[in-house]
Design a protein around this nucleic acid. Sequence first.
DNA 1: TTGAAAGCGTTACCAG
DNA 2: CTGGTAACGCTTTCAA
Lengths: 329, 329
Amino acid sequence: MAGLHDVAKLSGVSKSTVSRVINNESGVKASTKEKVQKAIDVCGYVANQVARDLQSQKTNLIGVIVPRMYSNATAKGLDGLSSIIDQAGKYVLLANSQQNHAQEIEYIKRFNQKRVEGILLYATHLDSALVDAIKQSTAPVVLIGQDGSLFNIPSVIYDDLSVGFSAGQRLLAAGAANIVFIGVNSQDIAVDQCRFEGLRQALQHTKQLSPLFHSRGEFSIESGYQQAKQLLIDWPQLDGLFCATDRIAIGAMKAISESDKVPGKDIKVLGVGNDELSQVSTPSLSTFSYAFDLTGEKSANMLLDLIENKQSSVSKLVMSFEIIDRESC
Amino acid sequence: MAGLHDVAKLSGVSKSTVSRVINNESGVKASTKEKVQKAIDVCGYVANQVARDLQSQKTNLIGVIVPRMYSNATAKGLDGLSSIIDQAGKYVLLANSQQNHAQEIEYIKRFNQKRVEGILLYATHLDSALVDAIKQSTAPVVLIGQDGSLFNIPSVIYDDLSVGFSAGQRLLAAGAANIVFIGVNSQDIAVDQCRFEGLRQALQHTKQLSPLFHSRGEFSIESGYQQAKQLLIDWPQLDGLFCATDRIAIGAMKAISESDKVPGKDIKVLGVGNDELSQVSTPSLSTFSYAFDLTGEKSANMLLDLIENKQSSVSKLVMSFEIIDRESC
DNA sequence: TTGAAAGCGTTACCAG
DNA sequence: CTGGTAACGCTTTCAA
């Protein structure tokens, strides 16, 4: 592959001059410029960015770590952040941990070797090993989806406590009193713990009630279906169901429909996320909408700030939500 | 930031020896190894992969270009391909063209500067400018979703003609005779042209019929809704509808429901993609299932082959589909 | 307006 | 077993 050297030889000038032409610097005679340009075309020279990066000590690389791609939060988030990063003239180096915790830490290390300028981490949990890895990272890290501000890690999070609280209020207002929460993994503070806690507080505060049960499963329709099936047996008095995600809620509604109950009537159901599924299901699902794409943009901007100024003006950003009222509650 | 040089000074050995320790090469006295290791820990040395890449002339980078992230095909595809690329010890450099054609060509160039080892391109169309850019690329390119084999570009595509043909047969078998196709952009050979052509051939071949109309819009529920609304006015005899994607079909069914017709009964509807939406809608949507994740894996493997052997054993891979029978047809 | 040479942080080869 | 030195392909001084 042709290098600067070859172009120089071919056009009979020095490497310095070729470099100047390539970078379009002023102070090169028009005739030599042409000569060089011709040589470049002839040998099909393509600048080697690796060498440039080494020389300039700057890679323009932003590392992004996600637990999985097939998810509204990450897919839309990536659409948002990639546009910001692109505008900044930088590149996205993408790593998919495939829900494997250990991988996340590994990627942080590898990204630092690759000399990324910053890291965006979509997290599903936050333990001390991960916190340590983030602290060790030379490249600044912005956490998305879990709150790391207690450990001084800049974070962009969703207002999960408020969502839970609002869910509780809506279920009560719709006449439900025997309410169950279907969450995910207890390690997932944001999605599982905070949303439940918000629900709990709403019931307590408004009617001195407690949720009947905190069920847990996975982020899928099938899992929601299976859990609801069991819940209908265990808690026959059930009349309100708050699900940590829309997919779980969709599955749960299917289970309810298959029993002798009617979702949205006998049992009020609420999801979170405003997945496209939620507007298409029968009954359509009442839920909460998060601006996933905007979250990606904000996170990217926060990281760019951090890179630029070595310290961000905000260390924690809480994304609000919108209440979506449909038929299920 | 500490470099090899600093570690060498700190531990009182040469750079060569430090390099050997870092790369865990044999032939280093245990005591010096320890000494060096200590120095590494002390100054928090992290190997500079940029320098390594320059020296080794190898970046382990795979460029991936997508039109958008928020799509089943790309999200699931990325899940598949990233696992293969990761297994191969390589990295994904991601570019989001945001449906902007010119960007794709730009990214191919920039990726070559970054010295990626290969490029995976999710394409929505294929014009001569793009073909040229691909030909110019030093890094091998595998095309996903559009057929570039005529131009000698290795491609992984879906069997869109067959899907269209099968759709025609199913609609006819269900009793439809006045059939309309809702496609997308005419530049999209695979999704718009091939699927329509398959439909046309099935109608022609089986019953000497022709499709009533070829409508076109975007990849969205809303667009499907709008188009179907118009179609119901223009073609009152309409009794079969083949939609290029499930989302379009979902929108169309909504329009049908809002008229005095019943989707799945008065008008048979078929989509493509087996989107999760399709199993949740009312009526549930009959469709075709593509293995998007597997497509990503196959494409990645094909590219790795190409990188390894400088030429692939297969130059075109056609992914098959599965017929999903539900209520709408 | 141009060229020579140093240096970015590694690895690899050849001596010792 | 270890060290010196030359690359890798570029940019950036400093001189000419």
